[in-house]
Design a protein around this nucleic acid. Sequence first.
DNA 1: TTTTTTTAAATTGTAAACAATTAAATTTAA
DNA 2: TTAAATTTAATTGTTTACAATTTAAAAAAA
Lengths: 147, 147
Amino acid sequence: MAKDSDLLLLENQICFPLYAASRMIIQAYREPLEELGITYPQYLVMMILWEKDGLAVNEIGKKLFLDSGTLTPLLKRLESHNLIKRVRSEEDERKVEIQLTFQGKSMKSKAEKIPSKIMECLNSWDQKSLVNFKSEVNKLVETLNQP
Amino acid sequence: MAKDSDLLLLENQICFPLYAASRMIIQAYREPLEELGITYPQYLVMMILWEKDGLAVNEIGKKLFLDSGTLTPLLKRLESHNLIKRVRSEEDERKVEIQLTFQGKSMKSKAEKIPSKIMECLNSWDQKSLVNFKSEVNKLVETLNQP
DNA sequence: TTTTTTTAAATTGTAAACAATTAAATTTAA
DNA sequence: TTAAATTTAATTGTTTACAATTTAAAAAAA
């Protein structure tokens, strides 16, 4: 029977390795993203826009689980790098639509080389257990997303 | 055969769910930790000290994969809350030893109730797959920690 | 021993995260 | 239709992260 105090050991935590792994893998993105001049959270936004351009801030936020307090300054930074435009919607003036600029669209082809670079860090993992692991993490996100 | 552009879809990323899960589970800690008046990274430091008091800043940093740029201000906050003392080492004056105060030690008993509260968020997971998942995440940390 | 290198914290500056609040537009309800 | 509630971004303030640099002390090399 585990004691309460055992559960307080770092090694027994589930959250800590998750927190560490998240930071480490974001770290792995740093070098390849530096060539594009963007950060990992900015890259996430760009990926969303490459998939579907013109989304509103809150729509991006829903996908990334981020609020305007985080996104507004981040989007302003992307705008100052001329990768996106922030356009007040005409149908609903509360909304701000995020549109890729030509430069923002062009960046996609460079970005396509990044995922395989990240995979290199994980080449000690076989494909199967990686796919399984990904689905487990996704399951965890689902679990934590419905309270 | 997957195209490069497919790999740029958010849903195909391994890092994103990891990043999201990490933030969500830290979020789950927020409420219980609020009762103790500390944040999740501060809680990690306290856990380390409850296990072994008097560690130097860099020793804490090695365990958490954090540098002095992050830890110094965090530790100053813990000190201002009277949970720790920062003491310049006498044997090696470069080092600062972090010692729990009486209040810091006392907090442990309250903190012992936290892990089970977090587990409640995960009660849809059976014990076995949770243990397995934890070891997978740990394996990932190991992988990413040796380049 | 003197010089060089390494190590440990702290500092500076930038970019997230996120709570809480605000302001404006839109919806819903009265 | 008017008033109340909701939605959307933005803003303010605090705390992490982390790169890069600085300062001082200790260890290693000359």
